[in-house]
Design a protein around this nucleic acid. Structure first.
Lengths: 131, 131
DNA sequence: TATACTGTGCATATAGATATATACAGTATA
DNA sequence: TATACTGTATATATCTATATGCACAGTATA
């Protein structure tokens, strides 16, 4: 299991929140099939150099939101969620953040045309060797 | 002076931060010309129902960043910043948030084409009666 | 059964945002 | 000059989010 979970300890966003969001994206995005075991809280904690409690909090949040399920003594696994739900999570997450970005641009007095132009530039940059 | 400063006390974003960002957008976006007086810290505090210290902190941050200047006893005013600087603030702020949104979409396994389609939908919605 | 894994619960530490009180100092103006 | 505005400084209190350490409990398996 070589999960691409990366956290920033300097970010304003809480660590447990970063973990939750990244797993949500991996699960809703289809990179983690149902039943797949997640790293144990101790393993992930050691890997990310954070406390067990922080990892646990992230896993608890994910469980409450229905993305994973934990079995004491056995481990933590990707929950059995429907494709519809995954799709809905994808759509709303991405829609919200994009809409928020547009709102911010408008608050800076950009016109819709300008926002579109900037956005298309960003996409073009991504199409080339950005990553 | 009827400033459109709105804060959310429930937001994860600190109140002073919300105030800073909104004034930045108003100033960089050209809605507040240089020399325009801002509300006094006491007036804004009362208006937003927050403490004077919180307002003061926001104003101090804005001053450090060069957007306003305060004169003891006189008040607080929009600073004399160049159009170039305003433009740079606009560009970087909006570019960053849009880029971040795209990154998030990619993390959810959307393709660039899909992101573009969703984005264009949002723009179209805005063009109609969204506000 | 021993042991080495899993997750769990509780009590606490730390940092940051915010609120409050108090006193001070500069400015405008009737 | 009186007063009613401005901003300033400082010290403290409170609340909350976040992170943590430690002891406990369930499970798998050699």
């Amino acid at each position: 299991m070589d999960l691409p979970i990366k956290i920033s300890k300097d970010s304003r966003e809480p660590i447990y929140h970063q973990i939750v969001n990244q797993f949500k994206a991996l699960i809703a995005g289809g990179h983690l099939a149902r039943g797949t075991p997640l790293p144990s809280i101790r393993a992930l904690s050691k890997d990310l150099e954070i406390s067990i409690i922080t990892t646990r909090r992230a896993y608890q949040d994910l469980e409450v939101q229905g993305f994973i399920k934990t079995l004491q003594g056995k481990g933590t696994f990707v929950a059995d969620i429907s494709e519809d739900l995954k799709e809905e999570v994808k759509v709303t997450s991405v829609h919200n953040i994009l809409e928020n970005a547009v709102e911010t641009a408008l608050s800076y007095d950009y016109t819709l045309e300008q926002v579109k132009a900037i956005f298309l530039e960003i996409l073009q940059a991504k199409e080339k060797g950005d990553s």
